[in-house]
Amino acid sequence: MAHSGRPLSPHLGIYRWQVQMVTSILHRATGIALVAGSGMVLWGLYALAAGATDWTAFTAIAGSVPGQILLAGWTWSLMYHLCNGVRHLFQDAGMGFEIAQFVRSSWLAVIVSLLLTVAIWAYLLAGGVL
């Protein structure tokens, strides 16, 4: 960017650490991760449309150890982006703007997304038995 000599706002390192910084950065990071995940959705749909051989190859890769690690990452990314996204929608509607509410809803998005991810993978690793 061009330097105009006008004053700039302090850079990130100046600020005291706050949970809202983390939720903001994570929202963008998980969003970018989910773009890669959307490619997996498209691939899955194509494998299903193409036939049994392609579908078996797809599920074998998805079910492999690296595949499961990626899927677990995408599960949390989706749960977090969903929880924090709902938080943002409430804020867009003008709710939850007190600082205390802001901090509380930030922690809520982080903790609930982790709990949901653990619940989903507990279900999967138990073989779908509840």
Binding site: L78, L82, G85, G128
Partner: peptide, 17 residues
């Protein structure tokens, strides 16, 4: 997507076996 991604997740989980 709040609604549709929850539907997607439940549908995919249902295809486990």
């Amino acid at each position: 997507l709040v609604v549709l991604s929850v539907w997607f997740l439940i549908t995919v989980l249902g295809l486990l076996h």
